[in-house]
Design a binder for these strands. Structure first.
Lengths: 234, 234
DNA sequence: TCAATAGTGTCTGTAAGACACTATGTA
DNA sequence: TACATAGTGTCTTACAGACACTATTGA
């Protein structure tokens, strides 16, 4: 079953990577729980979704393509994370991977039966260096949460502040005071009221908001509290 | 003179990158000016230093090796920045590059005659996508300045606060009040007094400080003012 | 003694956390 | 009316920016 490691040479005769991979830490929030999309391989290993970068595409395009194959989603927030290129990281040979962070709506369902949502905390046991990739993604996400519109990938087009608060709290690992949360999220300038309301069950109907931009954007610069970084929580 | 673009295939028959590159945005501060190390190629193009990643090394090791070849320095602050892998970015063929941020002491002198220090602002005209790499490096540096010990790469082992202030001001593109600067840098917990003093010219001698750690580390979390990001300054 | 640089103390504005209180819907 | 959720107002603490003032050296 064990194939020999792949090799590759370029036309100048020097060794080249045998392939360039692109992996994605695909995250969403359901019922206040941060979930990561994982794939169970035939050999039982639990890994992050990913694939090989084609000659004519960027790693980001690879990630979008693979994610669409596995879940059908095209929308979300996508961002390059870091490249993992330690020589022995992939048993197939020299395969650097460009890791990405992807946030998708909570109603995203895996179409590939090997893929499934798994709670991101505590971190699941992933094969190869995928645990380190996941940790890097969570650190990045927490770090950008209050400084950018990352959450636009998870929240629907129009949402009440309570839903935003649930998402932010799940990502940050902290509970936010509703009043303070509303004040500070509005102060970032990243969201704006839609003018509509949503009545959902008992209680006063909530005003709906939307993100001003769906493209990556930066906020006014808050300092809000988040839990200690995942790397320090072990 | 135009060679045909290189090609590469792996042993499975699929196209592979023809090589993996690692480039570095090497920065330092001299006399309050932020400088970037550039290389003038034989064809006249101004580029960032870099090289091909070997089969048995990480991109970071490539960067350290290349920098030692060009300047002799081994110490400094090194960090991976981002990977640039747009299909047509390199005329030689499919060559993704893992860009790095490197901060080195100001007395670092190029040994390679083709390399020279160039003011980083306004940004010099660089070939290929190296301008975008430089811009990303400056954004990252400004963003991390007050949250990490990045500056440890530029400052000597022991330094007066006035020197640190000069370096921070050059990076941030802002002048800091000496009193406020001292209070806030000490509050990060990243530096500690050496107990020694340095008399340099007229005036009261300055107490010397050192960074607690030379390895990448995070501070207590300030919010200090920096100039608008380079990407917004054009 | 003066100039120059280092360092301290304090005032002010702004923002984050906490929480009491009001508003508006459904059962 | 009871209850549940949405939203407002305000108090407190912390910290960044500004700046006046003191300290310590060399010329």
């Amino acid at each position: 079953m064990h194939a020999m490691a792949w090799t590759a040479r370029n036309s100048e005769g020097y060794a080249a990577p045998v392939a360039l991979a692109a992996d994605a830490v695909v995250l969403t929030v359901r019922d206040g729980v941060l979930l990561v999309l994982c794939v169970r391989r035939d050999d039982g290993a639990l890994v992050l979704p990913g694939g090989f970068v084609g000659e004519t595409e960027t790693p980001l395009e690879t990630v979008r393509r693979k994610l669409e194959e596995k879940t059908g989603v095209r929308q979300g927030y996508f961002e390059q994370l870091a490249t993992f290129a330690e020589p022995g990281r992939d048993p197939r040979g020299w395969v650097p991977t460009v890791a990405h962070l992807a946030l998708v709506p909570p109603d995203t369902e895996p179409t590939d039966p090997a893929a499934a949502w798994v709670p991101a905390r505590p971190a699941p046991a992933l094969a190869f260096d995928h645990g380190a990739i996941l940790a890097a993604a969570l650190d990045r996400l927490e770090g950008k949460l209050w400084w950018s519109n990352v959450a636009v990938g998870i929240l629907p087009g129009a949402f009440p502040l309570s839903q935003a608060r649930s998402v932010y709290a799940a990502i940050a690992g902290v509970d936010y005071d509703p009043a303070t949360f509303a004040r500070d999220l509005k102060a970032t300038g990243l969201i704006e009221p839609t003018g509509e309301q949503q009545a959902d069950g008992p209680g006063r109907p909530a005003a709906l908001y939307r993100f001003v931009s769906a493209d990556p954007a930066w906020g006014a610069g808050r300092r809000k509290r988040v839990a200690p970084p995942a790397s320090a929580r072990t």
